[in-house]
Nucleic acid binder design. Structure first.
Length: 190
DNA sequence: CAGCGGATGTGCT
DNA sequence: GCACATCCGCTGG
């Protein structure tokens, strides 16, 4: 399989987020092992106007990759101990990204392992700040493969997690989950 | 199930 | 200096 191309990421975060559900995220570890997960939960951060988006307060050293070209990772540390994996999208200068919140392990050998929750997921896939700005189209380290996109009827939209400070953006339905998946974080959605 | 503390980078003062 | 952060596992009721 080959990585999805740059053009896949050249659109707004909300549209991309919906299209990500069901696709495959690939993590190639330094030791050569390859981990694959099906995206079952993501959140869209839609740019400067979005009060939950890190870019809302402008460009800083931490969020700089959000302002760069699409098709790269944006990885940051939160609460002093968890890394978050985001996929930068839209056009350069328009800081939009999709947070990867949960994956369903694909490899049979990984039966029983859980990649529920953005912090746990990065820990289990050995993703940290050193991966910030990594090119998702290079086929090295982290990339996406086509997989089988979920049918629209299989996607549930809810408010995003952990952004109570975001005022009128707090309740925007920008979190997308695979309906009924046991691998989504939090309680099961019907 | 609500509440809470851990551990620290980040950005503003 | 300091308040806060796209979290999560554990505690007690």
């Amino acid at each position: 399989m080959t990585p999805l191309s740059r053009s896949f990421y050249e659109r707004g975060a909300e549209e991309l987020a919906r299209d990500l559900i069901g696709r495959t995220l690939v993590r190639c570890l330094p030791d050569g092992r390859v981990l694959r997960g099906r995206l079952v939960e993501v959140e869209a951060y839609v740019g400067m106007d979005d009060k939950a988006c890190h870019a809302h307060h402008g460009k800083t050293a931490r969020n700089a990759t959000m302002f760069g070209p699409p098709g790269r990772t944006y990885v940051y540390l939160v609460y002093g101990m968890y890394h978050m994996l985001n996929l930068v999208c839209a056009e350069e200068g328009d800081p939009q990204a999709v947070l990867v919140r949960a994956l369903e392990p694909v490899e049979p050998s990984l039966l029983g392992t859980s990649w529920r929750g953005p912090g746990v997921l990065c820990r289990e896939l050995s993703i940290d700040r050193s991966h910030d700005g990594l090119d998702l189209c290079s086929g090295r380290g982290i990339w996406l493969e086509s997989g089988t996109p979920a049918d629209l009827s299989e996607i549930v939209a809810t408010p995003r997690i952990g952004i109570d400070y975001a005022e009128e953006w707090k309740d925007a339905p920008l979190r997308f989950c695979l309906r009924g998946s046991a691998h989504v974080s939090g309680k099961r959605l019907s």
